[in-house]
Computed example of a mutant assay.
Amino acid sequence: MTDSSSWVPEGVNTALPSAARVYDYLLGGGHNFSGDRALAEKLVTVVPARDMARLNRAFLRRAVLHLVDAGITQFLDLGSGIPTVGNVHEIAHSADPDIRVVYVDYEPVAVAHSELMLADEPNATILQADMRDPEKILNSPRVRDLLDLDRPLGLLMVGVVQFIPDADDPWALAASYRDAMAPGSYLALSAFTWDNAPAGMAGAVEVFKNSQDPIFPRARAEIMRMFDGFDLVEPGLVYTPQWRPERPEDVGDNAERSNLYAGVARKP
């Protein structure tokens, strides 16, 4: 797709790569620009970024279906990104078309394309907001109109907390959302880690310094803290392909290569 496409929202700096558009490219999407593609190609020289994106997307699918099986009928997807095949409402609606989904992202291209995709979808919507502002998000009329926060909720923070620096306290942020959720709600989260390939991830940090979304990978213990106040479901916090794989071969011989930890947990 060319950088002069008519779908570019006004004011978007197409020269500055964004994580949402890089992820879209790595997943084979078409809503990205030359700068995003160039950054993605640099990224694959230091980490197996295409595998990481694919395995993270597969985790999202399994997590959503697990929550649907657990009785969750509404989802809040923070940092939802650009709508490519396999979005949350598509996964959930394959099981129950009455499930309600609110997507949240601050990236203009992600929001613009979500609005187009969801124009005729009464049970899903997109809110343009920064996930670091839970009060704004949770009190938004768009959220309140579609979600009932007095009932169990599926909160999705899949592949996004690595964009939140320590200075913005992602642990307190997760706690803020947790405290606003009804008992019986779930959190599904995945995040970049240093643990498997510290040198490669350090290279990824350098690559993302040339984007609007620097990354902050974390050790397993730091990611585990984001589940404080929740009860992790089996198999706990593991690499993405290890979380309830549908087939043994889906895990492969080197699950650590995914470089993201993933977990799902219930609020008691």
Rank of each mutant, 00 (worst) to 15 (best):
P83S: 06
E222M: 11
V46E: 04
Y103H: 08
R142K: 14
N56R: 05
M131F: 13
D96N: 15
D24T: 11
S211K: 06
Y177I: 10
L118G: 01
A175Y: 01
L67Q: 12
G79S: 10
H66Y: 13
V111A: 05
N139W: 03
E107C: 10
S176R: 15
Y261A: 09
S34V: 13
V233F: 01
L189A: 07
P134E: 08
D150A: 12
T193N: 03
D195E: 14
S94E: 15
P134S: 04
E107L: 07
P183K: 05
R57H: 15
R247V: 02
K136N: 12
F163L: 14
G30Q: 14
D168N: 07
F33C: 08
R61Y: 06
I126W: 00
N32W: 05
P122H: 09
I82R: 02
L187F: 09
L27F: 05
Q128Y: 03
Y186K: 02
N196C: 10
Y106A: 12
D98E: 15
L260C: 14
E107W: 07
A202Q: 14
H31C: 08
R225K: 15
R220I: 03
D77C: 08
D179V: 00
V22F: 04
R144L: 13
A180F: 10
D24C: 06
A38E: 15
R218H: 10
S5L: 00
D166V: 06
A191G: 12
E41I: 05
F59D: 01
N139E: 14
A199S: 12
V251R: 01
P214I: 03
